[in-house]
């Protein structure tokens, strides 16, 4: 269904940037354990998803500093530039890792490549549907300029509750930056759709 996927965020892979930090040595074994702990932290705004399933957790690894101290370096990327949940995500990662026996945690921001809804894992998509949300289709891939869309050109997603294809867009902006609002003409319920970006 989702053939245009660039990169699957599972399993959490080591972030190359962390290894570039001078004077630090990577520690793969602790890294795996830290990645497992970080991989269970949930998104504060869509708690049915882990940060890993949402594709915002880009890497976790443990490095040993010159003095011998182990530091977890976790990398996250915002879904949207103004995503207000970044600080909460950072705090949650730090607290969970602290509780799991990693007293030193650094959370870094990765801006490039930009987050894509294609990075939401299959498990994440299933979790969205189970919570009554509509999962995104493949993100648009363009080579030329972004075309202007004056009509409702994007195909409306089917209703996640009753499956009816008769749905209509209420607004391309919803309660969080990553969601649009639709309503279903079949069951008459409104629903949220995670936007394709």
């Amino acid at each position: 269904m989702n053939t245009g996927r660039e990169r699957d965020p599972e399993p959490v892979v080591a972030d190359r940037r962390a290894a570039e930090i001078a004077g630090r040595e990577r520690h793969p074994e602790s890294g795996r354990r830290a990645a497992e702990v970080a991989g269970q932290v949930r998104d504060p705004e869509m708690p049915m998803l882990t940060l890993a399933d949402l594709g915002v957790l880009r890497g976790v690894e443990v490095v040993r500093e010159a003095g011998g101290a182990e530091v977890v370096v976790a990398s996250i990327t915002p879904t949207y530039s103004g995503c207000p949940a970044m600080a909460t995500m950072r705090d949650d990662l730090v607290h969970r890792l602290n509780d799991a026996g990693f007293p030193r945690v650094e959370v870094r921001v990765v801006l490039d490549p930009p987050w894509s809804s294609d990075w939401i894992s299959e498990r994440g998509r299933a979790a969205l549907r189970a919570a009554g949300l509509s999962a995104p289709g493949p993100a648009p891939r363009r080579t030329g300029p972004v075309p202007l869309t004056l009509g409702p050109a994007r195909t409306a997603p089917p209703c996640p509750r009753c499956g009816s294809p008769a749905t209509e867009l209420s607004s391309e902006f919803g309660a969080t930056a990553c969601k649009a609002l639709y309503r279903c003409a079949g069951c008459l319920e409104p629903f949220e759709h995670v936007k394709e970006i």
């Binding site: 949207y80 530039s81 103004g82 207000p84 209420s170 607004s171 391309e172 902006f173 919803g174 309660a175």
Partner: peptide, 17 residues
């Protein structure tokens, strides 16, 4: 309400940039 939310979302995106 929808347009209120839309304008706030646009404002938030631009604030992030």
């Amino acid at each position: 309400l929808e347009e209120d939310i839309a304008l706030a979302n646009v404002a938030l995106d631009l604030l992030g940039q």
